[in-house]
Design a protein around this nucleic acid. Structure first.
Lengths: 228, 228
DNA sequence: AAATGGAATATTGCATACCATGACGGCCGC
DNA sequence: GCGGCCGTCATGGTATGCAATATTCCATTT
């Protein structure tokens, strides 16, 4: 790459402390939400500042951003608390997801190129209904990428932004969700029907299929997943 | 209320400077976007701190939140810039709005009570197609409240939050939009059909009507509204 | 012994001072 | 005369210190 052999990737290493602290906190909060379950939801500014090796100022600015994003809630003289999503909130997120992805599918039938839609086959055809049980992990990955692909095909950056923000909150639950085999089989069928609708440029049908598919996920979570 | 007759509401008057600065900046940015058109997009931390009578610290925390929200962008040593939305971004926002409000209408057919749906008549029946021309201002208000009411009926707080965030960005454009009389007449008819679908508890139809209604607005903006 | 009030402590909110860095202008050299 | 380089200045980034307030515990009183 570089003429003198030095691996100098476009710097990128030196952002502001605020930005780096923001990212670090985000992942830290995510980790805590995953593993520590009921553990300490209370954070301490100075302890965090010490832990990250920065002053309280950039840390507080990062916290202000996270508060705006709804990940933490700061109570004066009480501490900073990690906001834990209730099951109702998770369900609302999946509902919004359904609305946005179904709209994305509609848009995709208008703006996506044939080749792009055809590429979706690579995320569905590799899994036959038979061997889903054996490769559940891989399928879960392909599942997520399939939905992300549809959103990308819509060319709507705002939908992509909002859904990625939602995904960040939901993935903790999603990983906890036991995806039974029969749901996966149904999912695969759904996906193939969605691809067919996209290829037929049938916006109404694609939208409806995606919506129903995701709303089924919501109902499943509502019935069988327990949070807290 | 209180046993000794004293009317003591929990003070509530004093928020943190950060919160108040945040609100003040938000409205200030909105005002600038409305009137100053091409005017100064560059802000100065110290000048703003002086203007608001606070130190740079709470001001910067408020700016961090606004940056997270996408209203401003801060460039080191260059200044803080008000982010101006492009027309494409506005169109994306209306598209997302269509997706969310149509989903809200669907949800409303399930969870809303009859009385709540009936209350929508108060926002539509007062305007006959005839006298729309005379009371365009009032109609514009009722129009906005009608859509807000549908979202409220869905009982989905997340949809309400996201759409109110979008509205904040779009209203500057919405106010600039010349709502011609024939669009208003069409709009009234649409609204009445939507109320009918809600009363009939026809989720599919309510969703479709709301979606098409809002997507028509998008197409109108795309064709006839110029930004910048 | 229990309850209440006060004091001490701990923790956040805010302000100020300093630092690092990029922009801009002047000066020097070609 | 023009262009490049260097120095100064302006501006956002960071650290630290002080003030305000909530919490908690202990002492005193009933």
């Amino acid at each position: 790459m570089s003429e003198n052999g030095l691996e100098l990737q476009p710097i990128e290493g030196l952002q502001s402390l605020k930005a780096r602290t923001y990212e670090a906190l985000k992942t830290a909060i995510f980790e805590m939400n995953l593993y520590d379950e009921k553990a300490q939801l209370k954070l301490d500014e100075r302890a965090l500042a010490l832990k990250f090796g920065v002053s309280r100022t950039p840390l507080r600015e990062a916290l202000a951003q996270l508060e705006q994003e709804g990940l933490v809630r700061t109570a004066p003289r009480r501490g900073i608390f990690i906001v834990r999503r209730t099951k109702a909130e998770i369900l609302e997120m999946i509902t919004v997801w359904a609305a946005l992805e179904s709209m994305a599918a509609r848009l995709a039938t208008v703006v996506a190129r044939d080749a792009e839609i055809a590429a979706l086959h690579g995320l569905t055809d590799t899994f036959s209904s038979a061997d889903v049980d054996a490769h559940m992990g891989e399928y879960s990955d392909a599942n997520i990428r399939f939905h992300a692909a549809i959103i990308a095909l819509s060319r709507c950056k705002l939908i992509a932004d909002i859904t990625s923000g939602l995904f960040m909150h939901v993935r903790a639950i999603r990983q906890r969700t036991i995806v039974e085999a029969d749901r996966a089989r149904r999912s695969i069928i759904d996906h193939k029907e969605i691809v067919e609708a996209l290829e037929a440029r049938n916006g109404e049908r694609a939208e409806r299929l995606v919506r129903e598919h995701t709303l089924r996920l919501r109902d499943h979570v509502e019935r069988y997943v327990t949070i807290d």
